[in-house]
Design a protein around this nucleic acid. Structure first.
Lengths: 351, 351
DNA sequence: CTGAAAGCGCTAACAT
DNA sequence: ATGTTAGCGCTTTCAG
């Protein structure tokens, strides 16, 4: 309860009868310190309950070791499901994760001041947050590297880790047509660049094969929006025999809407999503979906940032990731998967 | 690309022909600075693209303005669904959110060093992370306040924000019995204190009314575990007419298991969950569940921490929150809700 | 109303 | 192998 100050390197040095800098070196395993003194210093530090002050270290080294994650106020589970993966990786890299959140209708500019204030080492930005040139410029000015997820970084001079979302969409088009569907509807997302790419790729894919999209509706990337869209689609005079939803959240809604309409998936309706969210693995959904190797993508993103700490002139880099289709039971499966322009993998039954 | 240093107060002061400290004061609206100079300094700062260095501020004030959120590697959506709420509130309070994650099988001790290193102002700890006395002691030593969520803080000398989970469980027992169920099964969670409280309260509630629990199985707070448990329960010779799952994730699994077994909810089986997760609002689930006022709870937790910045001897405080039942369609509803020992609220139909 | 100076806890040349 | 010395960028007495 006594408000005693935290032990500092100075106190340790006094106690050990050495200089502050010796302590500093001993603490960080500098090879020049003799084993004997290091051991002694470590013991003293330990006994005093010493804990290094990362704030002071950051100031002295001009290097914060904080990684920023810039998310948005989305309802989408993607961000939420995967933040834990990032947290783990950041921890394992000996860094800290700081969360920044852009409110609905805002842009990344809203959080730029805070990111700069804390001199974060770099930031990882999800597709749902709107980028701006001024923000990119400002970050560059302060030597903060950016990694954009699932969207091109070129326009902002940023790095990117990107599964080609258009390829994913295209793959789904081929998959659905090969599966024998001819009335293929699409439930689009919002203006988020990843959503746009998925749509573009999907439509391009259909065009390649000479199949007209049966219908296009908007679901705004929300459960509710997609539920309404799917319901409209399924209540029409002629209904689609397949629906591709631009993300899993909307695919869940589509499956529920189908069920509510008394339809059986995939017999009456095939549904394909995008994201490989966790709910899709539940037995009631068994969603066929485009999967992204999250673990690897975050790992790469983190790597790009760490590489650029202290190396302000390392140019941005881009890593591309192949799209892959995870096949479960929500869509009829074509005979010859090998002929598709997308990598396919089957997910065994639940349990 | 030029690695020019960030503008500092010193540079501004030079430019403005005043002293560093004047700049410092002007920047933080110190009343003693004349409007004229303040205005001039602000303009210069602006024109130089100045951004305060929070790291340096923290060092100088011995105060980091960082709030730590300590989560675990759980599959539970609770943490994930609600982290956004916290992020928003922390931002609005002008603080930053740093994420700490305890790996499966670990305790809070694993992240204590990092929290201390960054001299976080305080930490918010979810029930899923295991607390230890040494951790509590260490945080106290460094003046870092703790707020435990949904678990008593007394044992650790910590503050807490707590919906009485036992009351919630008890309320469910009364609700189910009043709804006419007599074969009431329970799917328990894990050792997490909130889960334990729910179980304890639920069993106590049944006892009060003189109803024996029909069966108790364990779902480990996971979808998969609960799905297996529910399936066992529903395939028995005599099956329960109601199942209370210790959290929503397990309730979702229960509903899916019931559906897979060809049962109709709530006609053949009533299901009640705990947490008010988002999936429960979907039309396919419409889960009756114990709700927690997340917004308020995080707000209170944050408040407890902010109150204790700079006031190391303000004793821990506890805020209690009443349990409330959110009634949807997954469980038969008793006639007289007013007679129940828990606040009930109906959630309108989806859409 | 503003300036001077010390200091927050640590690092990193530069000495020795 | 260790000590000296100067910062890192900001805040905060204490003066004036």
């Amino acid at each position: 309860m006594n408000v005693r100050r935290f032990p500092t390197t100075a106190e340790i040095s006094r106690e050990a009868g050495v200089n502050k800098s010796t302590v500093s070196r001993a603490l960080k395993a500098d090879p020049r310190i003799s084993e004997a003194t290091r051991k002694r210093i470590l013991e003293i530090a330990e006994s005093m309950g010493y804990a290094p002050n990362a704030i002071a270290q950051s100031l002295a080294t001009n290097n914060s070791n904080i990684v920023a994650f810039v998310g948005s106020e989305t309802q989408n589970y993607w961000y939420q499901e995967n933040i834990q993966t990032l947290a783990r990786q950041v921890t394992q890299a000996g860094r800290q994760l700081m969360l920044f959140q852009v409110m609905r209708g805002g842009t990344i500019d809203d959080v730029i001041p805070q990111m700069i204030q804390y001199r974060v080492a770099g930031c990882i930005v999800i597709p749902a947050v709107e980028m701006t040139d001024t923000a990119a410029e400002r970050l560059r000015q302060f030597g903060i590297s950016m990694v954009l997820l699932n969207r091109p970084g070129e326009a902002f001079g940023a790095s990117s880790v990107r599964q080609d979302q258009a390829e994913g969409g295209r793959g789904v088009a081929h998959f659905l047509v090969a599966g024998g569907h001819r009335r293929i509807a699409f439930i689009a997302g919002n203006m988020n660049p990843a959503a746009q790419d998925r749509e573009r790729g999907f439509l391009a894919g259909l065009k390649e094969i000479g199949v007209e999209p049966f219908a296009i509706d908007r679901g705004e990337f929300t459960f509710r929006g997609a539920y309404a869209a799917a319901t409209r689609l399924l209540q029409a005079e002629v209904r689609p025999d397949a629906i591709f939803a631009a993300n899993d959240m909307m695919a869940y809604a589509t499956i529920e809407a189908a069920r509510a309409a008394g339809l059986t998936v995939p017999d009456d309706l095939s549904v394909v999503g995008y994201d490989n969210g966790r709910v899709g693995a539940w037995p009631g959904f068994r969603l066929t979906t485009v999967a992204q190797p999250i673990e690897r993508m975050f790992g790469d993103a983190l790597g790009l940032i760490l590489d650029r700490q202290d190396k302000p002139d390392l140019p941005p880099d881009r890593v591309g990731i192949a799209a892959g289709l995870l096949i479960r039971d929500s869509a009829r499966v074509p005979e010859d998967l090998g002929a598709l322009p997308i990598d396919c993998r089957r997910d065994g039954p639940f349990g």
